[in-house]
């Protein structure tokens, strides 16, 4: 199962990003674990400067906006 982390300091877009990813995962029938992370240490580790950032299985794949649904599909498949 894929582990998806959403990095950001609790902004509205981070919540939205988590919702959209969950939605896409549900509609594709894929099980994922979504974790919202706001720790500054993690933000630093991945060098995130624009939030929300998305990390899939320890690999940062996106940063700075709520990701597009089609793009999310590619990550979780």
């Amino acid at each position: 199962m894929k582990k998806i982390q959403i990095l950001g300091s609790g902004c509205a877009k981070c919540v939205k990003a988590a919702e959209v990813i969950q939605e896409v995962a549900d509609s594709c029938g894929v099980q994922v674990i979504i974790v919202k992370e706001s720790s500054p240490e993690l933000i630093l580790k991945y060098g995130v400067m624009t939030t929300p950032a998305v990390v899939v299985d320890s690999q940062m794949v996106h940063s700075g906006s709520v990701p597009d649904k089609k793009v999310i599909e590619q990550w979780i498949k």
């Binding site: 300091s9 902004c11 060098g47």
Partner: peptide, 15 residues
Amino acid sequence: FCSCSSIPVFLGFTS
């Protein structure tokens, strides 16, 4: 400015 990006920007610059 968005207050939610001040931490990432701060850390990004500092590091």
